[in-house]
């Protein structure tokens, strides 16, 4: 049971990989394995962490060539081959280093975001696109005294999208993001769609227009990797397809 970890910091000519023999413990997660590495081998290993319970979205990284949350991914399941996710291939998950998937877990930083150190990436561009779509609930009618009434069925539909934890796994898994760094990407678009389907805003809906640009809805090539890697079951590709259909219909009618 070994961990093979990507190491890089400023000044290094090229990244290197460190291999670490893990002391096995039951149900050990990749995050726990990284702590073991940090505590037993090298305290300079850098990675982000917070909740360790798959709710905060901090620890997304490329694990065995799939973007996932380190805290939710068990080492043993990976070695047994139980956690394979079939995603469409793209350059950023190509071979970087030889590794034995039956013996080793390969941990690398999320693709498509600049590496700062080891497994820590700069999330700046990811949140820049989040801000670009202006994810703020601003209904056009004045606030009522109490809550706005909502059909429980509509809440269910909305929850599919409010569950996003902004971990950027989808961003890292998207072949289009890899080719076109100006594409808003699946997370921002799914977030925008969440506001589009919020039934509390009863006015003429212009939400979808915010991403009605070449690098918005229209840039998606429907690979669907986003749907497959999301740790919270959010389906950005589905949202994008629906948004595109709605915009096309609107344009036809106009």
């Amino acid at each position: 049971m070994k961990l093979k970890v990507y190491r890089y910091h400023e000044g290094m000519a090229a990244p290197r990989y460190d291999t670490f023999q893990l002391v096995p413990s039951p149900a050990m997660t990749v995050l726990e394995a990284l702590f073991q590495f940090q505590e037993k081998l090298d305290d300079s290993l850098a990675f982000r962490y917070s909740c360790r319970g798959a709710v905060c979205g901090t620890c997304a990284m490329l694990i065995n060539k799939v973007p996932r949350l380190a805290c939710r991914t068990q080492v043993e399941s990976l070695l047994k081959g139980n956690l394979k996710v079939a995603i469409a291939p793209y350059p950023a998950i190509g071979e970087t280093v030889p590794w034995d998937p039956e013996e080793e877990v390969l941990v690398e930083p999320l693709p498509h975001l600049p590496v700062i150190r080891d497994l820590i990436v700069d999330m700046g561009i990811f949140f820049q696109y989040y801000r670009f779509i202006a994810p703020v609930f601003r209904p056009s009618d004045p606030d009522p005294e109490k809550e706005r009434i909502m059909d429980p069925a509509a809440v269910k539909k909305l929850e599919t999208y409010t569950n996003c934890v902004l971990c950027a796994a989808c961003h890292a898994a998207c072949p289009v993001v890899g080719q076109n760094p100006e594409y808003l990407g699946p997370a921002a678009l799914a977030k925008l769609y969440r506001f589009h389907v919020d039934p509390r805003d009863v006015e003429e809906d212009s939400t979808l227009k915010r991403a009605d640009i070449p690098n918005g809805w229209w840039a998606c090539d429907l690979y669907g990797n986003c749907n497959r890697v999301c740790p919270k079951g959010v389906p950005p590709r589905t949202a994008i397809e629906k948004a595109v259909a709605a915009l096309n219909k609107e344009k036809k009618e106009a």
Binding site: K146, E147, I149, M150, P152, V155, T162
Partner: peptide, 21 residues
């Protein structure tokens, strides 16, 4: 405080009558 959050956009679970559950 709960209503404020609702007005800001929080998606609370709902009762059959549409009020906050």
């Amino acid at each position: 405080a709960v209503i404020e959050l609702e007005h800001m956009g929080t998606v609370w679970s709902r009762l059959a009558d549409g009020k906050i559950a």
